[in-house]
Design a binder for these strands. Structure first.
Lengths: 132, 132
DNA sequence: ATAAGAATGTTATGATATTACATCAATTGC
DNA sequence: GCAATTGATGTAATATCATAACATTCTTAT
């Protein structure tokens, strides 16, 4: 795997779409937004997303089947990332908590469970939406 | 809402299918297993699942689009539940961790985020599968 | 008995994701 | 050079997951 310095055209387009989006996008929404750039089929989106996720530049939000550009693309050294997703406005906050990571890691070790990917997603109402 | 004492026929059938399954089942797998019991359409499954989830008898695993019978159906007082899902054999472990719950709650409070539903799912290899 | 609310049955459709196969481009080993 | 490999792409078809819309039946409270 080469350094992320060189994304392919499709990968760059998908990342750009996500980066400029107001919130998480579904794969098909991305497809629609890239029609004018030559995208014709879902696979073009899914393949780009796959690579971008490997590079740590994009996250998949499992609970809503959508994707976001990573908010902290600098250090993607495997740390556990949690998401707070506003069900009203779609805004997503990305955060880490060492204690949570430690507790889940402890459980895994105690049960001889070898984690490959961990999902933490909190759905609810963000500050703005819950005060309104 | 009435007490879970009386499930409807469809709800009981779906719960039974999940309870006797070796692991999580997709809605369509449940449908197939209940064909002989008169199930014909996905909605029959989804509607039963919806009620069973409200009653805390069934959980949805967001990361794999599947459903499991709750392992601790006694006390469903809103506590945060985490799942460890073996990607090899499909076995699911359900557990709680007060510290994790407290830390996520603390983050939410600090950010004025009002949580409605929280998902914690660890995918990986269970003891049996990782030792083999 | 009847009105209100749930649950059900059925068809159709929407939304998300992958398989399969052909092609093209860059790199590598000889 | 030039096959051989590898990775990316294009395209069509299909698989998988989930809900909308509508009619009907069952339950229960009054």
């Amino acid at each position: 795997m080469k350094a992320p310095a060189e994304l392919t055209k499709n990968q760059a387009l998908v990342l750009d779409a996500l980066s400029h989006a107001e919130g998480p996008l579904s794969a098909y929404t991305i497809l629609d937004r890239l029609r004018d750039d030559g995208f014709r089929a879902p696979l073009q989106v899914y393949r780009a997303l796959e690579k971008l996720q490997e590079l740590g530049l994009v996250h998949r939000l499992e609970s809503i089947n959508a994707f976001v550009a990573c908010a902290h693309p600098h250090d993607h050294h495997q740390e556990l990332i949690a998401f707070a997703i506003c069900e009203n406005c779609g805004k997503v906050d990305e955060f880490s908590d060492e204690m949570v990571e430690e507790r889940l890691g402890r459980w895994a070790k105690a049960h001889d469970f070898r984690p490959s990917k961990t999902t933490i997603e909190i759905r609810g109402a963000c500050r703005t939406c819950s005060s309104a």
